[in-house]
Amino acid sequence: MADVAWLWLAAVGCFSGAVWLALAKPVHWAQVMSATAARRHPALVLRCLGWLALATALAACLRADAPTMAVLVWVMLLVPAALAVAMALAWRPAILRCWGAAVCLRPGSSGR
């Protein structure tokens, strides 16, 4: 059943990746973060983190299944991930705040 754990990781990775890629856009960052946090927008970091999460998700898919299957699962997991992010942004943007906060609390930026 270890495969299930890898697939969960893949799902979380895809969702987190989609959240960070969305937050990399100024309009969504402003939607999600509080006014004080919204002033600084670490777009590049968010974008890198987003792609890194998606890559991690792909790696997890590859651990769970044969490569041909894993690619399909990964591509298809992006659909609910992106939809969920869009719906969250539309109705409850605040629930995505911890993904943005995680970036603001980076050791390099925590002192500011």
């Binding site: 890629l21 969305a22 856009k25 992106a82 869009a86 719906m87 539309a90």
Partner: peptide, 8 residues
């Protein structure tokens, strides 16, 4: 720019 945009 509007990849994640839905304005119900």
């Amino acid at each position: 720019r509007e990849l994640f945009t839905f304005r119900p």
